[in-house]
Amino acid sequence: MSAFTDTATRSPETQLRRRPVRPAKLALHFALVVCAVLMALPFLWMMFSSFKPLDEIFRQPPALLPENWTTEGYQKAFEGADFVRGFWNSTYIAVTVTALSLLTSAMAAYAFARIDFRGSRTLFMVFLATMMVPGQLTIIPLYIIMGWLGWIDTPLSLIIPSSLFSAFGVFLMRQYIKGIPRELEEAAELDGASKFRIFTTMILPLLRTPLTALGIFTFLGQWNNFFGPLIFLNSDANFTLPLLVNQFKGQYGADWTALMSATTLVAAPLLIIFAVAQRQIVDGIALSGSKS
C-alpha cells in the first residue's frame, strides 16, 4: 500500500488555517467530544472509582467523580501485592518482546516481500494460517515444550515464543514493505549493495511508522497478556501485573477498591504510552507532508 509513496498529505494545521471556523465544524467537534467521552467513560469510571470508598463504587445511580476522595484502594493494592516488582517484570517482558519481535517480524517480512525464493508463497500462507488457530488449544503441548527447555517459571517462557513468532507482525510488515517502491533498492542493488545492507539502511528506516504502530500493539498485547503468565509462572516474584491485579478478584468475591486501583495502575501507563507514541506517528507523517 501507499503509506510512504505519498509526500503531500495535507497537515491538519494548514487545513485549520485555510478555513474559517464554521457552524458545521463546531457541530463536528461537539459530536466528536461527546463520542470520545462516551467511549472513554468506562475507563474514566475505573480511574475515578479507584479513588472512591467502597460504598461509592456501588452507589446507584453511579456517580463519576468520588464524593470523598481516598487512596485507600491504592494502599490496599500496594499492601496486597508487590507492584514495583510486577511493574518491573511486566516492563522487561513487554519491552524485550516488542524489540525482538519487531526485528524478527521485519526481517521475515522483508524476505517474503522482496526476495524470490522457492516456496515463498506457501510458507507465507502457513504463517497466515497460524493466525486462525485458537491459542488455548496449544497451551498444553507448549507447556510440555517449556518443561523440556527448563523455562517454566522463568520469563524466557514468555519472551522467547512471542519474540520469535508473530504471524500478525510478519503479515502487517510484509504489506507495508510491498507498498514501498522498488526503484531505490534496485539502484542500490546494481551498485552492489547486499540484501542485509538494503534491509538495514533502506527498509528499516522506512518502516518507522508501521513499526511504531506494530510496536504499540505488541507492547499492549504483552502488557495485558494474562493467560501465558498464568500458566507458565509459578513464583509470585516472577508475576506480571495482570496476575497481581487478578489476585484481588478472589475465588468468590472481589476486593473492589483494591481492584479498581490495581487495574488503573496497570492501564494508565498504556494510555500514556499511546498518547506519546501517537504524537510520534503524527509527527512522522507531518514531516513527510511538509517536504513537497
Binding site: 467511549m39 468506562p42 487495574t263 498504556l270
Partner: peptide, 12 residues
Amino acid sequence: YRLGFVAPVVTS
C-alpha cells in the same frame, strides 16, 4: 479525541 476512542482498548 483519539485517546478517548483508544481508552476501551486499555480498560481492564
